[in-house]
Amino acid sequence: MMMNDRSIEAHTLSVLVENAAGVLARVIGLFSGRGYNIESLTVAEVDGEAHMSRITIVTSGSPMVIEQIKAQLSRIVPVSRVTDLTVEAEAIEREMALVKVAGTGEKRVEALRVSESFRARVVDTTHESFVFELTGAKTKIDAFVQLMRPLGLKEVSRTGIAAIARGPEAM
């Protein structure tokens, strides 16, 4: 019988890869070629000596599709490990955002006040603008950006989600 479970779940996957040419293209090509979603993707080298990079992907799909995505990722030759942080561990997920807000007078004061309550840092300032640096869960950044919109939001740069499991074990 077909698995026709249509319940869509979001999963955060950590993918440890050899830092070789074309690996990211392989991973992204897999998602586009097989019609999977990418909601967030981050990648950076995490071990320079071992030439290993870590890709964090937030994707969504039915449980059957999520299983298939993990199996397909594991099949890519330079992929050394795939961990589903949503299932296999209690994980911490963080995203960093740089948010540029321009304005003067009341709005400028309000923007600064809001940023303090979010524990955002001011990393650049002029007489008519701020750049805030903010780290937190995706929902926190979403909320912050929403609040800044009427206060002179100019642009947003977000890193996408990085995630790691709690506790002493490595992936």
């Binding site: 019988m1 077909m2 698995m3 059957m64 299983e67 298939q68 199996a71 594991s74 099949r75």
Partner: peptide, 11 residues
């Protein structure tokens, strides 16, 4: 031999 063949279309 290929884990991705398992449960791909048929449980």
């Amino acid at each position: 031999i290929d884990p991705s063949s398992i449960n791909k279309t048929v449980h």
